[in-house]
Design a protein around this nucleic acid. Structure first.
Lengths: 192, 192
DNA sequence: CTTATCTTGAACTGATCGGTTCAAGATGCG
DNA sequence: CGCATCTTGAACCGATCAGTTCAAGATAAG
């Protein structure tokens, strides 16, 4: 089997992404990636370069996939509903049995001190984009500019907290109450 | 030098705790711990057993040290002030240059899938205690029992989010606004 | 001083790590 | 068929991992 690529690069990236997502960077060896993707060790190096490069590709794929969903959720409707839908994206991802709990971005951010600077920067960028998304959605309200920024960073933070809590065994219903209080705070702020 | 212990076990635990806290379990080798504590490799094994046992000791020390501070913060005054003081403990810890950003408990929770079950359970317990602390402080208010529980898990979650955000480079001032919105939500709930 | 106890450094084991190399084999194209 | 291209498995490299062992040395108690 040769001549043309024998595998779907995107499918391989998905499998690698899930592996990194579940076990983290340090606890994922090239052998683990080989098993997870079905690709041979040498094929991984030939296709993606080294472990860091593959991790970056996985980060980008993760950010793109879920970034689109967050964008859609925030797109229409009143701000309160949009933010609720925003959190739904995360809660549904946590409920999805095909995918690990937690969040690849949060996991990357938590291991920042021992990571390649480029990787750490990419995770920080992703969090910045998340915040920008929220800022945009909130800027269509009567909220003051500083309140828009405050709520944007608050929602981005609460969204990350879901990753930690779900890994610690917090139930979906409990996570829902975590986000409800934040969403209600926005509703309250918009009411007056 | 022998006959009696030549080192302070607590001081050694502090150094090991900081090392684990900064780099995480997977990225901390016994050699790293040896350098961080000044203890010889064999002394570590003789005193604490294996890496897992030492990590558990560090988790306990972390939980005890900061648990006391959280208890004190929540102890007196109106609930809103108590919760604000609760978050201050975390924000001050993040601002402390002698200690890494993030949170050892959050870090442990994030790596749950690849950790010793006993270690994962210990982190989950610590989060449960955090929640119980908050529940107790909130139960002295006119809040309904279900609201007490909801706010307790919300505050515990937001507190964990600070660890992720601080690792991603979010400034102390921004983290403060994250917690302010949550504290205001409680104030609002108590007002009516 | 003698003896028992403890610490220490260094050497060592077997396993695994990330990364490289290369011959063997499978494929597509002319 | 013949040739170029790509994939694959396996072997290999040096480094590092967690964990063990032990002789040498330092101390305290008798």
């Amino acid at each position: 089997m040769a001549g043309k690529k024998q595998f779907d690069v995107d499918a391989v990236l998905d499998a690698a992404m899930v592996q990194f997502w579940r076990a983290g960077y340090a606890d994922t060896s090239i052998d683990d990636l080989s098993k997870a993707t079905g690709l041979n060790r040498s094929s991984i190096y030939a296709t993606f370069g080294d472990k860091d490069a593959l991790y970056l590709r996985c980060l980008d794929r993760y950010a793109a996939r879920y970034g689109d969903r967050y964008d859609q959720a925030l797109a229409g409707g009143p701000a309160v509903d949009a933010v609720r839908a925003f959190f739904d994206v995360t809660l549904e991802r946590i409920a999805d049995p095909d995918v690990p709990d937690g969040c690849l971005i949060a996991q990357t951010a938590m291991t920042t001190p021992v990571l390649n600077a480029a990787i750490a920067a990419r995770a920080s960028e992703a969090l910045g984009r998340q915040r920008a998304r929220l800022r945009t959605a909130l800027s269509c309200t009567e909220l003051a500019a500083s309140d828009v920024e405050d709520f944007a960073v608050h929602f981005a933070a609460v969204n990350q907290s879901l990753a930690v809590m779900s890994r610690a065994g917090t139930s979906e219903a409990e996570l829902r109450t975590v986000t409800d209080i934040s969403v209600n705070a926005l509703a309250q702020a918009l009411r007056c």
